[in-house]
Design a protein around this nucleic acid. Structure first.
Lengths: 154, 154
DNA sequence: TTGTATTTAAGAATTATTCTTATTTAATTG
DNA sequence: CAATTAAATAAGAATAATTCTTAAATACAA
């Protein structure tokens, strides 16, 4: 999607949810689209601060949570550290590095098709999404000597 | 495994890692074995406090992190809230309720067999574990009217 | 029984997130 | 193009979760 189209889609979705289109919100959305995978609220805050030096972390974080509520984002599963967001709605799966906390996306048609067992559905009314997660050690971390918790700090 | 056997295994693993067998550690281990699925450090703290009223949260939490390092536990993936632990090393998978944050275990021979795509392995030296995660709304939460973030507080 | 490295309790510090309140502003309407 | 008003923001305090620092206590090896 082109940048202009993306912005139009953003404005459209805000209108659909009666959210005012403020410069701050637009800037947060912009930062998100340009951010590396799975940014934290602070990552986005640092970017937006360049444009709006007076913006507060709370505003950025609240905006991200609002975006999550209206379906512009999801929150990524993690093992600790700060919450991380994901604007990528393409089907995809995650590999976590247990040393550095990096989360790498990958795609798999096979994994996209997995269905929840029927037995499980007796406890759950609705399934909204699914994901396959691998945990391991990335190449960069392989030679580091630091100890690590089985599931480590991000 | 019987309770006595479990304790013996615990002592054995502590010895292997040169960890002293303190009453506090033993109590934390005990609480873990009796806890409901995926307890938080505070859940365990509340249990252990009955036996050791002077124990601090820090001791319990540090002990749990130590147990994680020596492979007695894993940390469960989550979308927010406090860290949750899992002493269950049987292969299993998770369903998260996005409203109440409950995490339900389920088993699946099919899911146990999933292999990371070869392409991914160019970025990762080692794969240690994998899990399939479903997100949805549990039956109990289905009729609640509260708003919720796409991925909600635990 | 003694020595010592480890572990603990206590409390302070840090990190992440959310709340409260007064002010500002987007966007609707006259 | 004002005036109105509900929504959004900034600022700072509050809360929640976790980790650090230090001095005292203790497991256990010798």
């Amino acid at each position: 999607m082109q940048e202009a189209e993306q912005l139009d889609r953003f404005f459209e979705i805000c209108r659909q949810h009666n959210l005012k289109i403020t410069p701050q919100r637009t800037s947060v959305y912009h930062a998100l689209m340009s951010a590396e995978n799975h940014p934290s609220a602070d990552d986005i805050f640092q970017i937006v601060k360049h444009q709006y030096p007076n913006i507060t972390f709370d505003t950025v974080n609240r905006t991200l949570m609002t975006f999550t509520q209206i379906g512009l984002l999801t929150i990524v599963e993690s093992y600790r550290g700060s919450r991380r967001f994901d604007p990528n709605f393409e089907d995809h799966h995650h590999m976590h590095c247990l040393k550095c906390g990096r989360i790498v996306d990958f795609t798999s048609d096979e994994f996209d098709q997995l269905k929840a067992p029927k037995k499980l559905m007796q406890k759950f009314a609705t399934v909204l999404s699914s994901r396959v997660i691998f945990n391991g050690i990335c190449l960069e971390c392989q030679n580091k000597t630091d100890k690590f918790y089985r599931n480590n700090k991000s």
